[in-house]
Simulated assay, not measured.
Amino acid sequence: MDTNVSITLLTPNDYAQWDEYVDSKTASSLYHKTAWIEVISKTLKQKPLYLIAKNSDKSIVGVMPIVDLNSWLFGHYMVSMPYFNYGSAIAESIEIEHALIKTAIDLAQSSKVSHLQLRADHELELPDLHVNTHKVNMVLSLPESAEALGKAIGSKRRSQIKRPIREGVSHKFGGLELLDDFYHVFCHNMRDLGTPVYSKAFFSSILETFKDNALLCVVYWQNKPVSTGFLLHYNGRMEIPWASTVKYANRISVNMYLYWQILSHAIEQGFKEFDFGRSTIDAGTYKFKKQWGAEPQQCYWYHWVPEGKEVPDLSPSSGKFDLAIKVWQKLPIPITKLIGPPLVRNLP
């Protein structure tokens, strides 16, 4: 590594240069963009701390977005990046990437956090860090036409897509004008899963901030919204960070129709890949995504913890949240909308 490389906290003066650097890198994701600083700080009330590495000529040679999360329920910790599947450092060399991570660890130590989590899509070659590899991102290489996709998924899936069509479903793609319908379905589905919901303001902020990268799809049945997906796209890849279907519509396979319309749209718009999001291998969601032809891409989630400490398990599947999940599933929707956002802002 160039000994003249300096690593500092990002200031607004470098936002434009940071984003230009991110846009120039194939390894970057939408979640490396500086616009998330305002979204996260204003709607989730958490503290972004972004690290920027510069050469002696002041050119950027590496970046690393970090969010400092502080909660009475889950403690004080840092994640790069929370709420999403991608983050960690991107840099001109392994040496600079490691230097950014070392600086992040120093920042975590000085802040006395319980742990630092890095959500990488590749091995970091840092043996001193704990790594979890039980999750994968399911990614589909999109064919050139919806017809080709239809042939690839087979007759059983095609018949499942036709069922809701016979039932008279319809769909819309759009932005803020569909947010109420999206949020209605999202809140019902999250309640049934026992999961706190994000605020509507969070989704509104994303749609407003990333006008050219964000899109909603809502499916209607009997004049009511019943299934929906929140879509983000960047660098030739479309992904679906949030998808929901109301329970009573599952009997007509409306989620199959939703994904068919979304994938067909992605193909028509010229995207090369579709990211279904992360799953545990062989879990139900993994098998659902696999049937569309998606292939697993390994997640490498690294953790630094202070010496003598263990990595805390904040996963809903850990078992310690079982009672809370059962209680949440019985709450009225208006209550979940009220108390959900203050809780979920602390869940990475």
Rank of each mutant, 00 (worst) to 15 (best):
S145K: 01
L149F: 02
M78P: 02
H134P: 06
V136G: 05
I165E: 15
F84Y: 10
K172S: 10
L69W: 01
P82N: 02
E95A: 15
R157G: 07
H115T: 03
E144W: 11
V139R: 02
Y86C: 08
R166C: 14
L107F: 15
F84S: 07
L107P: 08
S80A: 05
K156W: 05
D106Q: 15
H171K: 04
M81K: 01
K135A: 09
M138T: 07
N85G: 14
S110N: 12
H98E: 11
M81D: 01
L126G: 09
W72Q: 11
H171M: 10
L107S: 14
E92S: 15
P143K: 03
A120P: 02
F84V: 12
S145I: 00
H130S: 15
Y86H: 10
G154Y: 02
P164A: 02
K151P: 07
K151R: 12
S110G: 15
H130M: 12
S155N: 15
K135P: 06
L116G: 05
K102T: 13
K151E: 15
K162C: 06
A104V: 01
Q109E: 13
A99H: 02
G154Q: 06
M81F: 06
A104Q: 00
P143I: 04
D128R: 12
L69Y: 01
G154W: 04
N70V: 06
T103E: 13
V136P: 03
R157P: 04
L124R: 00
S141Y: 09
D68Q: 11
L116A: 03
D106N: 12
M78V: 05
